[in-house]
């Protein structure tokens, strides 16, 4: 087990290297650069643009720029933001914690909603099943930014006293901070909960028809024991998989949601950085996001082995 974790962690390094190359090249393949973006629509002389590019090292070949960046990255220096001239690490960290918190709350919401509706759907069948599946189809069909806009709209219309755009920092008011993230997290979680719900439903249905559940009933065990130890524990493996995968979807979705709810997180930072062609900032965000997804996959693999003794990594 420890060996598996060590190997998996070692494997993340070449993957991150690949991700950083792809991100680096793709960003520079986009039309425009920071010099033009910062100049905006104002007329600016070609000489002035060249000066900005030279100062930022943008006049050098792409591979050389990458090596310079990589040299810094390997020593923990992700460079300075073009826009603010501040170290990227210092700018990213506070935003990362905001996004991490939003994603965590949304993930817990999605898992709770998805697991409960999926379980109810599979066990109660009938009307509950129809209702859950109907709702799931609806939520799946509507993208999360539409859900977010609807939430903003409805909350604004019917609960004008509730501040929607009043993000509160965790340090100043922890409870207020969590409260201010609830609606954004909900709009993120709804779509993701559908996948978890449908997978939970399918897994529980599959497990329900297994012989060992019949044996458990023949043992005269209480309904809660059968549900917990026989149904849920066996249905857990596929649910863990999709939940882990959906975390990536949550990270991606947070870009839109943070922009809509004006939350100062990584998503909005990425949005602004792309608009500004702020390469060092983009590069750092991509690297951090990739690291989170990779680490999450390792956590999922560890969770497998904890749940199911048949899973062995030796």
């Amino acid at each position: 087990m420890i060996r598996m974790v060590a190997v998996r962690l070692a494997l993340t390094l070449p993957i991150l290297l690949g991700v950083s190359i792809v991100a680096f090249v793709l960003m520079r393949a986009l039309p425009g650069d920071f010099a033009q973006a910062s100049a905006g629509t104002t007329a600016i002389s070609a000489e002035a643009l060249d000066t900005i590019r030279r100062n930022l090292g943008l006049d050098q070949p792409v591979w050389q720029q990458y090596l310079v960046w990589l040299d810094g990255a390997l020593t923990g220096d992700l460079g300075r933001s073009f826009a603010t001239r501040q170290p990227v690490t210092g700018e990213l960290l506070p935003r990362l914690t905001v996004t991490a918190e939003l994603t965590l709350i949304a993930g817990l919401m999605a898992l709770t909603m998805g697991a409960c509706t999926g379980l109810a759907s599979a066990r109660l069948r009938g009307t509950t099943d129809w209702a859950v599946r109907g709702l799931n189809s609806l939520l799946l069909a509507v993208p999360n930014f539409v859900v977010a806009t609807l939430i903003v709209l409805l909350a604004g219309l019917y609960f004008p006293t509730v501040g929607i755009f009043n993000y509160v920092a965790f340090a100043s008011d922890p409870l207020g901070n969590i409260a201010s993230l609830l609606l954004p997290a909900l709009s993120l979680a709804l779509t993701v909960s559908v996948t978890i719900s449908e997978n939970t439903r399918a897994a529980v249905l599959e497990v329900s028809s297994q012989d060992y559940v019949m044996v458990a009933r023949a043992k005269g065990l209480r309904a809660w024991t059968i549900l917990g130890n026989y149904l849920v524990r066996n249905a857990l493996t596929p649910v863990i998989t999709v939940t882990g995968l959906q975390l990536a979807a949550l990270l991606g979705g947070s870009i839109l949601i943070e922009t809509i709810f004006t939350i100062p997180g990584m998503g909005q930072y990425l949005f602004d950085s792309i608009a500004n062609r702020d390469y060092p900032a983009i590069q750092a965000i991509v690297l951090v996001a990739a690291t989170i997804v990779l680490l999450m996959n390792v956590v999922v693999d560890i969770a497998y082995a904890r749940v199911d003794a048949r899973v062995s990594y030796d």
Binding site: D211, V215, G220, L221
Partner: peptide
């Protein structure tokens, strides 16, 4: 069930809970 009347099923390969 289990206390007064108990049952042994046909397929032992699928009758035990794999995660317990």
């Amino acid at each position: 069930r289990g206390r007064r009347i108990a049952m042994v099923f046909q397929d032992p390969m699928t009758s035990l809970n794999p995660v317990m």
